[in-house]
Design a protein around this nucleic acid. Structure first.
Lengths: 203, 203
DNA sequence: CCTACCGATCGGTAGG
DNA sequence: CCTACCGATCGGTAGG
């Protein structure tokens, strides 16, 4: 399987995407703006300048597209998280880095991130369950960082789960308005949010 | 027009809702779980134990239900915000109270809040534009509180808009998991979140 | 990648 | 509130 990082570079360095990649990309844009259920295969075909029936030479079904987008993003988030896990830094720095890599993944694929955050519920079983398990696993890492910080008295005695989810909701929300050509770079946003959250929880 | 506060009490004190109110309530539950576009009038009718066609003696269209839910929530948020505006407290307390009343509105109508936050994009014009203007107006109040705090040096020199939106995303996320019978009361959640956010922005 | 088409389901109406 | 039904649109297939 192609890794997200490789594919991200691919997308930036050259504009020549395969038809399947074009379908996934335009589907992400469409699903983000109209929602999965309200987006028709005819809408998607029109954006690509082909007939709806022609889409099926490249894909199996509408849901398969959604599946690819959701699981590819999940993989990207996990890959990013694994990279910071090996660092074994102290809780504050670990939280800051976890936020930074998470935001970097979002910034690299805003449309896909929006689909990941809002359209996953249209996945059918067993994919839906698999997706939710992965998401919970991912969130657990943030909770663990908080708990470790609380145990070592670096952080106040906050509710670890409530706080972790609050931090995640704050950074996830960035996908709604972030533009790579905006006045704030993703690093600046990351810096400000980490500063705010760490001040919020430190002893 | 009936105010939200009145209606909230109504809903708690007696179970006898008009058919139209039952439709709105069940539609909110349905739209929250399946999404507006994926929810059919036949789904809604089934929950109510009637035929789909029968819904139309009480409502004009599917979108009219969505409209009522979204604008009723908007009204509730505004009513709550106006109440704290008259207090003229200092920025920290003002922020804390703005967060508290916002969370109280969410806790009072979790299903409707979910629809308000996620399904508004299915509104057609001119309602969509009207909705977005109201939302921006509401958010502006949070930005103003931040700006005032920064100007009086009570808060650090953060980006007021980024910070206000971060706070809003953190408190809006509560609707996804809050249960009135959960271990944390809405007042406790409100207290913890306000503490964290104020520590995050204070000088 | 297209034309031609399918059965299913959609929101909604007529008339009682 | 129901039966009966509508035109439109949906995801997807057959066959080239």
């Amino acid at each position: 399987m192609i890794t997200i990082a490789r594919q991200g570079t691919f997308r930036i360095t050259m504009t020549k995407l395969t038809r399947k990649q074009q379908i996934d990309k335009q589907a992400a844009v469409l699903f983000k703006t109209k929602g999965y259920a309200a987006s028709s295969m005819r809408d998607l075909a029109q954006v690509l300048g082909i007939e709806a029936a022609s889409l099926y030479s490249h894909i199996k079904s509408k849901e398969e597209i959604l599946r690819r987008i959701c699981f590819r993003m999940a993989e990207a988030f996990f890959t990013a998280q694994k990279q910071i896990e090996s660092l074994h830094s102290e809780p504050k720095l670990q939280l800051k880095k976890a936020m930074a890599v998470h935001l970097k993944v979002i910034a690299g694929s805003v449309d896909e991130a929006a689909v990941f955050f809002h359209e996953w519920r249209h996945l059918s079983e067993p994919y839906l369950s698999e997706f939710l398990v992965m998401r919970t696993d991912y969130e657990r890492k943030f909770i663990a960082i908080l708990e470790q910080g609380i145990a070592t008295k670096v952080f106040r005695a906050v509710d670890a789960k409530l706080t972790a989810m609050t931090i995640l909701s704050a950074i996830n929300w960035v996908h709604r308005w972030y533009r790579s050509d905006g006045k704030l770079s993703i690093e600046q946003i990351s810096e400000q949010l980490a500063e705010m959250m760490i001040r919020g929880v430190k002893s």
